[in-house]
Amino acid sequence: MRQAGPDLDGERRSGPGVWQRLKRDRWAVASLFVLLAVGVIAVIGPFIAPHDPLETNLSMRLKPPGTPGHLLGTDELGRDVLSRLLHGTRLSVGIGFLAVLMAMAAGVTLGLAAGYYGGFFDALAMRGIDVLMAFPYVLLAIAIIAALGPGLTNAMLAIAIAGIPYYARITRSAVLSVREQEYIEAQRALGSTNRRIVLRHVLPNALAPIIVAATLDVGWMITAAAGMSFLGLGAQPPTPEWGVMLSDGRQFIRVAPHLTLMPGLAIFIVVLALNLLGDGLRDALDPRLKDS
């Protein structure tokens, strides 16, 4: 039972409660701070980087972390690893968020329409989603990239498309339960248009699971984008994207393990923080799920 009951603007009142509950979760709060810091780095990273991330110096290659002038060492071309990581934050994290936004926009629209209107449109949309889901995302992404050519934007597009079914399904199932509520019926009785009902009443009340899903999904998208780049399908050299750095560094894993360790850790920290925050949010938004 949704606490707001028949309240027409239920989601607004639940706001402070969510924050109170989230605050009690130390890990979620810590993750929030980590993510804020990552966000700041994504914005100012390129300005505080000590070196040009593309500047090569073959006589200073594969220097270990702690080398004067190169806090995190240098890579196989003598480029500064710290500067590349700082520059890469915007790309790697930004791609994750953007891909989620794109997938969400398409998926939620589809899910809302399918769930609310039902009938033939619902069947059609959901079979389309089934087809998309039947493809492993890597295969789907490779097919898309084969058609569009490799590159960061195309990789982002590919994983975003691969993510659409996830949002469409979550939205649809949330909408299915919301649309039977009395307050929706009340709106209908008052003569509200479908558009108004969907946007003002159905969507806000179906939002909680979507937000949780998106938070958890950003981490997944970041990993997927890095994976695409690792496979050579995403960002192209010399872009300082974390997946590219991992991929290039793996050939030097014995002589210079920091080349894989540093971008690997960066991805690990961001994704872990996102998952912990997502977990916390889910508990806070929907206390019933806590022990399941």
Partner: peptide, 24 residues
Amino acid sequence: RAMAAAIQADLRQVGIEMNIQTFE
């Protein structure tokens, strides 16, 4: 890949920009 990146960096010095595309 590494050789491509090194060449790309050298050519940037003389004003030639190279868009690298990698393939299997």
